[in-house]
Simulated scan of single mutants.
Amino acid sequence: MSIPSSKIYAYADDTAILVQGRTWEEVKAKAEFALSEIMNWLDLNLLTLNLSKTYFIPFAIRRNTKPTNTFAITAHSCQSRMVLCTCPTIVKADSVKYLGVHIDDGLRWEKHLDTLSNRTLRLIHIFKSLRESAGFDTLKMVYLALCQSIIGYCITAWGGAAKTCFLRAERAQRAILKVMTGKPRRYPTTQLYIDCQVLTVRQLFVLRSVLRVHGCLPPSDPRKRTYIPSSIQHNTSFAKRQYYVLSVHIYKKLQKELDIIDLNKYRVNLKTTEWLKQQDYIKTESLLTYIT
């Protein structure tokens, strides 16, 4: 179904509706209309919306632009809204978990990175037990299967988060690598990644961003693949940390370094991965610096 001024994102039985407006009053009206349309559609198809598991998040970049505490969205089922309405309101949340990702109202990804770090650290006991009987190659395969799969999940969504939040995930990753290789707590970080030959969390974000942008380019035809996607210009630091802005800038910088535009995706993956393994923390962070 299609609802005016709204976007619907659905996967199995998890559905999200995105509504935007110039004022919170406009957002409220559009959201209640969209919710009413969905409830009517469900009713016609003999289905019911579970309001106890339905939440809304008012997104705002700055705290002073957030709606007041009295802001609420009502799930109207009454025919007329002019009379006293007793329809229930849905719960307001600061963050929700959608398809395994914790989305907060400021898109700062703090809660998701905390959850990610905790999930990663819970793997320590596995590597403590396994390192006594397995070689490094086996340990690395287990790391890629268990740890990096957790770290890399939806990383293009949250991988541009501020360094102050992002360090939590990288510390958790380093803890796993030190346990896996039996290194002391104060073992040098740079040497640790050289020994393990794995990407840092931020480097993994860079790699995934480059591959996604590269996959959107025209087919590998020299007559067609002669351009790089145009940059999206934004002035706010918030926008500059988001994938849809940051990914193109990262790709442009990697293109200047590696000349990857005419390579297939497999070779781009190999070439970019090997280059990233040779870069230090400062160089990796410089790739995320917004250029004009």
Rank of each mutant, 00 (worst) to 15 (best):
M1P: 05
S2I: 11
I3K: 03
S6P: 00
K7A: 11
I8W: 01
Y9Q: 10
Y11S: 12
Y11V: 12
D14S: 12
T15G: 01
R22Y: 14
W24Y: 05
V27Q: 08
K28W: 03
K28L: 08
A29F: 03
E32N: 07
E32V: 00
E32K: 02
F33Y: 09
S36I: 01
M39D: 02
M39K: 01
N40A: 01
L44S: 11
L44G: 13
L44P: 00
N45L: 02
L49P: 03
L51E: 04
K53E: 12
T54V: 07
I57L: 10
I61R: 11
R62W: 06
T65N: 14
K66H: 06
K66D: 09
P67T: 02
P67M: 04
P67I: 06
N69T: 03
T74H: 05
T74V: 11
S77E: 01
C78F: 01
V83M: 03
L84D: 10
C85N: 09
P88M: 05
T89I: 00
I90Q: 06
V91Y: 06
K97F: 04
Y98M: 08
Y98G: 04
D104L: 00
D105T: 02
L107C: 03
E110C: 08
K111W: 02
N118P: 02
R119L: 13
L121A: 13
L121T: 14
R122E: 14
L123N: 15
F127V: 10
R131P: 00
S133R: 15
G135D: 14
D137P: 00
L139A: 04
K140H: 09
V142D: 10
Y143A: 11
C147R: 01
S149C: 08
I151E: 08
I151S: 12
G152M: 09
G152N: 15
Y153L: 05
C154R: 09
A157Y: 05
A157C: 13
W158Y: 09
T164I: 11
C165G: 10
F166G: 04
L167Q: 12
L167H: 08
E170I: 07
A172Y: 13
I176N: 13
G182Y: 06
R185G: 02
R186F: 11
P188T: 10
P188K: 12
V198K: 13
T200W: 08
T200R: 15
L204G: 13
L207P: 04
L211T: 04
R212M: 09
V213P: 04
V213W: 00
C216N: 15
P219Y: 08
D221P: 01
I228H: 01
P229C: 06
S231Q: 09
Q233A: 06
H234W: 03
H234P: 02
T236K: 05
S237Y: 06
Q242C: 07
V245D: 01
L254N: 03
I260R: 04
N264K: 10
L270K: 15
T273K: 14
W275I: 04
K277Q: 15
K277S: 07
Q279L: 09
Y281E: 14
T284F: 07
T289P: 08
